[in-house]
Design a protein around this nucleic acid. Structure first.
Length: 169
DNA sequence: GCCAACGTTGGC
DNA sequence: GCCAACGTTGGC
């Protein structure tokens, strides 16, 4: 399958990310059913920069339920398409419509992610806070609100181990 | 360019 | 439901 974008493979080591989602708006079960989705609606410049420039094909994604019971990492996904303009910004009927975004110079970006696995149990925020290896996680820092954020390799490995899932992609 | 007002996020 | 921490907006 040809792609305009060059593959990330061999260009740099796989990197890891955490995507937050309120399960009432989009849950891991929905992703499992959909198999893949485009991560739309991010309207924060720091997160936008990651989606546009840093998050590459094959990267790993921790899927986190925010504002939920429990708040937890509930699964993993992988990046299946690199950054491209978020179509919802140009759709005037969409909740995420941004009238000030110029189609010739789009403001907001998405990536596509594909379902990989659910963790055997939710890895709750409390479980993560109890794990000293995870004490530097962006997610656990005070006031951290980034909805798309970087995860260190050792943090990724720790959480996959806690979740009983193997990196199979 | 400063900063007060306002809106949102998201844990608690 | 509360509110701290942020990000954005807009008047000056």
């Amino acid at each position: 399958m040809a792609s305009k974008k060059t593959s990330a493979k061999g260009k740099r080591p796989r990197r890891y990310w955490l995507f937050k989602s309120e399960p009432e708006s989009y849950s891991i079960d929905q992703l499992k059913q959909d198999k893949r989705t485009f991560w739309s609606g991010v309207r924060n410049y720091q997160a936008r920069n990651l989606l546009r420039d840093e998050i590459l094909l094959g990267d790993g994604v921790l899927f986190y339920h925010s504002n939920a019971k429990p708040m937890a990492v509930v699964g993993i996904a992988k990046v299946v398409k690199e950054g491209y303009p978020d179509p919802t910004q140009f759709d005037s009927s969409d909740h995420y419509y941004d009238e000030s975004s110029d189609p010739a110079d789009p403001r907001w970006f998405v990536v596509d992610i594909g379902y990989v696995a659910k963790t055997q149990e939710p890895i709750t925020r409390d479980m993560m806070k109890d794990q000293s290896e995870l004490s530097d996680m962006v997610l656990l820092q005070r006031g951290s609100r980034l909805s798309v954020q970087p995860v260190e390799k050792h943090e990724w490995r720790t959480i996959l181990k806690m979740g009983g899932v193997k990196e199979t992609f």
